[in-house]
Amino acid sequence: MPLFLISALVGAVLSGISLAIFAPYVTLRRISYMGEALSHIAFAGIALAMISGLNLTFGAWMFVSIVALGISWLSQKYKIQEANTITIFLSLSMALGIILISLKQDYTFDLASYLFGNVLLISASELWALGLLNVLNIAYVLFFYKELFYLSYNPEMSKVFRIRTQAVDKIFYLLLAANIVFNLKSAGIILVTAQLILPAVTAFNLTCKLYKAIFISVIVAIISALAGFAVSFALNLPTGATIVVCQALLYTLSFIFKKGRR
């Protein structure tokens, strides 16, 4: 197997794992729209990083993190409906991204690979970054398990019972932004949200324990990455899209299993 294919396979698996660790929390907190919005907002972040000469991934992460914390703060402070705030930010960011990219005419920008992802283009440094991100994700989820559990259950009650969730919540958004931005190369702006939801909803069809759901979510992501990679390689299909289809198939199977168990 050529080295670039091994890198791509490892990249697809690491990418799937990193999104799958966060997926149960995104599902329980009912903020899947936030994942959708942040992936689109990352587009403006990439464009801004390009204009200012920053590293694209790092620049986009900075931008997405600021916007994610901003949305969270605005909706808590002024009780604005998060869905409305996010739609405004999402549309504005896409518009801003398109304008900025059109201004930078001397730069060749492979828009399609960011929109739909192309894991074959993943570099060694990006693999390391994904590996490090996974370590951070696991450490975060293990260390703040209790706080994340109650934050997901009810943030207002967490405050009443003095559970220290404020900083945990901020770190959550910073890591969520990192997970989205660092996976754009492999999963793509359009498809990254699917990988942030499907493994978790599949897991919750199979278990009603959070720690088991996180574990199953990761297993679903690994199986889908391996199967999706193999099928896309054999049939010459886009890898990111095939992985998402595999996740959707596993979700369907889990749904049938859940219905059959009742």
Binding site: L28, K146, E147, F149, Y150, S152, Y153, M157, S158, F161, R162, I163, R164, F204, T207, C208, K209, L210, A213
Partner: peptide, 16 residues
């Protein structure tokens, strides 16, 4: 459908 038992919710009272 939140994956919590009654005891998990009661324990919230001392989580802080």
């Amino acid at each position: 459908s939140f994956p919590a038992t009654a005891r998990d919710i009661v324990l919230m009272g001392m989580a802080g």
